[in-house]
Amino acid sequence: MADKQKKTIVVTRFDPDKDEAPRQQRYEIPVEPDWKVLDALNYIKDHVDGTLSHRWSCRMAVCGSCGMNVDGTPKLTCKDALADYGDSVEVTPLANFPVVRDLVVDIEGFMERLQKVKPFILRAKELAVEDGPTRQSPVELDDFRQFSMCINCMLCYAACPVTTNEPDFLGPAAIALGHRYNLDTRDQGQAERNQVFREDGGVFACSYAGECSEVCPKHVDPSGAIQQAKMANVIDWVTGLVLRRGDAG
């Protein structure tokens, strides 16, 4: 039987109890041709070094847990074929995030941003069950379907230069999800979300580098969502001014 192909996986290691700063560790392992990057990490964890920490769950690009930087680019490691890389592959934790341990990042900052935009349906008054379902046509659904595909993998944050430079920036996924609910005909929380969007670090902090949309594994196009949210907020703000003047008169 022919020898298996070998690859060197260069992994970032960081133990908060021992290390002052993250360091690199190299593992030379046998690989299968159909392996994803995550398979290589799992092989290391199972057969070479059980102390390696990394997040993963579904292995089918749905849960969004296994996002890491692979050779410098944010990727879902369960979707990213190892064969696409050379003999040596570098895996680092997602950029722009504090590192808890090895390849595991602290997602608390992201969760706080997500909560700010209230990514769920808000109603001024809940409908009673006997009122029946709130209907939505396929055309209305199509207005936001793309933005609802977000799996919160945070790759967009790892690629975003505004997140790098402006610590208060809400960020691509949170804005895209907030905008998704603003476009939903069943939702009545636009005013509440738009207020958050217009704060410092809101939609207008984005200068449309577009890197978030390039790395998005679900083709959500967060940068497009942010620009749409900007336009909607300008219209909302102007409409508010005009209506208020009208009311005063």
Binding site: F14, P16, D19, A21, P22, N69, G72, T73, P74, T92, A95, N96, F97, P98, V99, V100, D106, A158, A159, C160, P161, T164, E211
Partner: peptide
């Protein structure tokens, strides 16, 4: 935690 780093 280790501080965040800028993208590659």
């Amino acid at each position: 935690t280790a501080p965040p780093r800028a993208p590659d």
